[in-house]
C-alpha cells in the first residue's frame, strides 16, 4: 500500500470514528441539556442564598424567619399561600417578589407589625431605580426565596443541628461578638460596612470608629456610639432622617451593647 492509500484508509476510519463520537454526543444532548437547565437553576438558588445573607438577613432574619418589629417572614406558609391574595397582587408569587424587591416598599402594608425602616419601609434594591443590585441578582434572590416553599408548606422537614453560628458566649473577642450582634440585631439591614453589610438606609459605618469622636462636642467616640444606639434621636447624622429603630435600649442588653460598641470602634 502506498503512503497515499494508507493515509486515505486511516483517514476514512478516523472520520467514521469521529462521526460515531458526534452521534453519541447527539443522542445524549437532550439529557445533557435538561441536566444543565437544572444545574443552572441550582446555581441561581446558591447565588441568591449568598446575596440574601449579605443584603436581607438584617431585616428578614438569617433564615427568612422575619424580625418582629422590623420586617416580615418570607419563609412561612402565610407568605406562600395567602400573601399575594392579601395584597391583591395580580401576577404570580415570583413576579411579586421581583417587583417588591426591585422597587422596595415606600410604606409598610403592616406598619404595626413590620414598620421596617419607616419611609421607605424597605429600600429600593434594583439598580434601575437607584438600588445596589442588578436585575439578574434580584432574579436569583427570588429563586432562593421561592425555594422556601417546600419547608413553608410542611412538605419537607429540615434536619436541625444544635448551632450554626458560634454563640456570642463562645467568642472571647468582644469585636467578634459585636459583629455577630450587628448581623443578628438588624443593624446590617440599614447600615453598610465594607465587606460586612450593604444596608443603605443609615449612614455607612465603615470608618465610624474614627468619625464617632467628631460628632458631638465633648463626647468620646465610645460615649457617642453608645448614645447613637440607645437614643438615636440624640444626634441626627446630616442627610439622614430619623429612621433608626428606637427600641434597642430595650432589646439589647448592657453586655451586648458593650460588644456592639467595641465592634463599631474597631471600624476605622
Amino acid at each position: 500500500m502506498s503512503r497515499v492509500q494508507l493515509e486515505i484508509f486511516l483517514g476514512s476510519i478516523l472520520i467514521a470514528v469521529t462521526g460515531f463520537i458526534l452521534l453519541y454526543v447527539g443522542f445524549n444532548e437532550e439529557k445533557r441539556m435538561e441536566e444543565f437547565v437544572r444545574y443552572q437553576a441550582a446555581q441561581k438558588i446558591e447565588v441568591g442564598a449568598q446575596l440574601f445573607e449579605i443584603n436581607c438577613r438584617g431585616c428578614h432574619g438569617l433564615r427568612g424567619e422575619g424580625i418582629p418589629g422590623l420586617a416580615p417572614p418570607l419563609n412561612d406558609a402565610h407568605f406562600f399561600q395567602a400573601r399575594i391574595a392579601e395584597v391583591g397582587w395580580q401576577g404570580g408569587l415570583e413576579d411579586y417578589i421581583i417587583a417588591t424587591v426591585s422597587t422596595g416598599r415606600q410604606v409598610s402594608t403592616r406598619p404595626d407589625l413590620y414598620p421596617g425602616a419607616g419611609s421607605p419601609a424597605m429600600p429600593t434594591w434594583s439598580d434601575e431605580f437607584g438600588g445596589p443590585l442588578r436585575k439578574d441578582q434580584i432574579e436569583t434572590l427570588a429563586a432562593f426565596i421561592l425555594n422556601w416553599e417546600a419547608t413553608a408548606t410542611g412538605d419537607v422537614e429540615l434536619v436541625q443541628i444544635p448551632s450554626s453560628e458560634p454563640s456570642a458566649e463562645e467568642l472571647a473577642d468582644p469585636v467578634a461578638r459585636g459583629l455577630l450582634l450587628y448581623n443578628q440585631s438588624g443593624c446590617a439591614g440599614c447600615h453598610a460596612i465594607e465587606g460586612i453589610s450593604v444596608g443603605a438606609v443609615g449612614p455607612n459605618l465603615t470608618t465610624v470608629g474614627d468619625t464617632a469622636a467628631t460628632r458631638i462636642e465633648g463626647y468620646s467616640a465610645e460615649e457617642y456610639l453608645r448614645e447613637s444606639i440607645v437614643n438615636p434621636l440624640a444626634y441626627l447624622v446630616e442627610g439622614y432622617d430619623d429612621l433608626m429603630l428606637k427600641n434597642f435600649a430595650d432589646t439589647v442588653s448592657d453586655a451586648e451593647l458593650d460588644d456592639l460598641v467595641a465592634f463599631l470602634l474597631a471600624q476605622r
Partner: peptide
C-alpha cells in the same frame, strides 16, 4: 446545615489567637 429543601450551607470557620494582641480572630 440544611438550609432549605435541597439546599445546604457549609461553613468552614477558623478561630485563632492573633500573634501580637492575643485577641481571638475568626
Amino acid at each position: 446545615e440544611e438550609w432549605q429543601a435541597d439546599l445546604t450551607k457549609v461553613t468552614p470557620r477558623i478561630i485563632w489567637s492573633d500573634g501580637e494582641s492575643g485577641d481571638r480572630k475568626s
